[in-house]
Simulated scan of single mutants.
Amino acid sequence: MKIALVSDAWYPQVNGVVRTLQAVRQELRRKGHRVYMITPDRFMTVPCPTYPEIRLAIGGQTKVAHMLDRLGPDAVHVATEGPLGYAARRWCVRRRFPFTTAYHTNFPEYIELRTGIPEDWLFEVVRRFHAPAAGVLVATPTLQSQLARRGFRNLRLWTRGVDVSRFRPDLRTDLGYPGPVMLYVGRVAVEKNLEAFLEVDRPGTKLVVGDGPAMTDLQRRYPEVRFLGVRQGEDLARIYASSDVFVFPSKTDTFGLVMLEALASGIPVAAYRVPGPLDVVGPGGFGTEAVRADGPVGVLDDDLGAAIDGALALDRRACRPYAEGYSWSNCADLFLRHLALTGRSGSVSVAA
């Protein structure tokens, strides 16, 4: 199958969307499919307002249409609601070409936090973006239910995976910090609710891996925290495995791929009792009953400090088997099944 994957999120960005698309692309190619990426690195870009680290493509309407015309894809998947996503959506709608989209990020909530624009207004804009899609791929049952209540249609479950060959407990070493070591990995931005973690008063060392617009301010306000910047590859895997608990303070993430990376590394998760953590490590997760029998792999609590205390007391040996229940191969197979449902002869309900 010839698949066009369109995304406004791509390298050098480092986030769950980019890691997911890269892993799925690799799996699809391994399975014999031809995958063509339409991403910002092929266009002129400008900084995203309030988040200059993210570059947005400009002048993409005509160029994206020409790319898709030349490619003649069997399937089009639009991963993001950005300029390139809108350009690909327009191409598909005008040609009545069935396509899928994905709801990776709670942009309405993020934008409200940054600008004060009510999220209800923004959800209507995002709903209209996804309305013509033959399938809207979502990561968890909780998110599926939430979006259905907001009028989204054609929602399809598409879970995530983790590279268990890269993230491993046997990489554990002494990082040289007083323990317990409490780790956060992700964007350093207001929507990640990172302050809730940094405000927790517990002995030990807090590590923050990542970068973002809130970095300078948080470094100034929390000098006792170790801000390690962006880490990748085995360096990142070693930090995961060498920590004692992974803290996930976000209340807006749709999934939280970093939680799976932590579990594959053999460390339990502490998080709020909210969508994302509830689906990944809580009773609503995708793990099999056999995996669950190994014991809990995280603690969710409305008090993040209590969640950290509880997670530190868990048996780390349960974490790795749980993470092994997720694979990128299964993730890619699900993706393909949703693409196959659209078919080139399917119909598209036009919603401008």
Results as ranks from 00 to 15, higher is better:
residue 286 F to C: 01
residue 264 A to H: 02
residue 279 D to R: 15
residue 334 L to A: 14
residue 227 F to K: 11
residue 258 V to F: 00
residue 325 G to Q: 06
residue 223 P to D: 14
residue 265 S to C: 13
residue 321 P to A: 12
residue 336 L to H: 00
residue 317 R to H: 08
residue 308 I to N: 04
residue 223 P to F: 11
residue 322 Y to P: 03
residue 333 D to N: 12
residue 271 A to S: 15
residue 226 R to M: 11
residue 238 R to I: 03
residue 240 Y to G: 01
residue 251 K to S: 09
residue 301 D to T: 06
residue 225 V to S: 01
residue 298 G to N: 10
residue 272 Y to A: 04
residue 315 D to F: 09
residue 231 R to E: 12
residue 240 Y to R: 08
residue 277 P to F: 00
residue 283 P to F: 03
residue 296 P to S: 13
residue 229 G to I: 07
residue 300 L to V: 12
residue 317 R to C: 01
residue 314 L to Q: 09
residue 236 L to P: 01
residue 256 G to F: 00
residue 277 P to L: 05
residue 242 S to N: 09
residue 217 D to Q: 15
residue 281 V to T: 09
residue 292 R to K: 15
residue 257 L to I: 14
residue 329 S to M: 06
residue 225 V to L: 05
residue 218 L to A: 12
residue 295 G to C: 09
residue 304 L to D: 03
residue 273 R to T: 10
residue 268 P to K: 04
residue 249 P to M: 09
residue 249 P to L: 07
residue 292 R to H: 10
residue 265 S to N: 11
residue 333 D to A: 15
residue 253 D to W: 00
residue 270 A to L: 07
residue 233 G to W: 11
residue 255 F to A: 04
residue 223 P to Y: 14
residue 267 I to L: 11
residue 217 D to V: 04
residue 278 L to Y: 00
residue 262 A to F: 03
residue 330 N to R: 14
residue 223 P to T: 04
residue 308 I to A: 11
residue 235 D to T: 14
residue 221 R to L: 10
residue 248 F to Q: 02
residue 240 Y to D: 02
residue 228 L to S: 11
residue 230 V to M: 15
residue 305 G to W: 06
residue 329 S to P: 00
residue 249 P to I: 06
residue 318 A to T: 14
residue 331 C to H: 13
residue 274 V to N: 03
residue 327 S to Q: 08
residue 301 D to M: 05
residue 225 V to Y: 03
residue 262 A to N: 07
residue 236 L to N: 01
residue 280 V to D: 04
residue 302 D to K: 00
residue 251 K to F: 00
residue 225 V to E: 06
residue 309 D to Q: 13
residue 225 V to D: 06
residue 219 Q to A: 13
residue 249 P to C: 08
residue 250 S to P: 00
residue 269 V to R: 05
residue 241 A to I: 07
residue 267 I to Y: 01
residue 297 V to F: 01
residue 273 R to W: 05
residue 283 P to M: 08
residue 248 F to G: 02
residue 322 Y to T: 03
residue 321 P to I: 09
residue 230 V to H: 10
residue 228 L to W: 03
residue 291 V to T: 07
residue 273 R to K: 15
residue 269 V to Q: 03
residue 247 V to Y: 03
residue 239 I to Q: 00
residue 312 L to D: 07
residue 257 L to M: 15
residue 282 G to T: 05
residue 284 G to W: 12
residue 252 T to G: 01
residue 299 V to N: 03
residue 281 V to C: 13
residue 286 F to Q: 11
residue 313 A to N: 06
residue 307 A to H: 04
residue 317 R to N: 13
residue 252 T to H: 12
residue 248 F to N: 01
residue 231 R to H: 12
residue 270 A to K: 03
residue 271 A to P: 02
residue 312 L to A: 10
residue 332 A to G: 03
residue 284 G to S: 09
residue 226 R to N: 09
residue 249 P to Q: 10
residue 218 L to I: 12
residue 336 L to Y: 00
residue 318 A to G: 09
residue 237 A to S: 11
residue 287 G to H: 05
residue 226 R to A: 15
residue 244 D to C: 11
residue 311 A to F: 06
residue 243 S to N: 06
residue 247 V to P: 02
residue 286 F to R: 15
residue 319 C to Y: 07
residue 302 D to W: 02
residue 272 Y to G: 09
residue 222 Y to N: 10
residue 308 I to C: 11
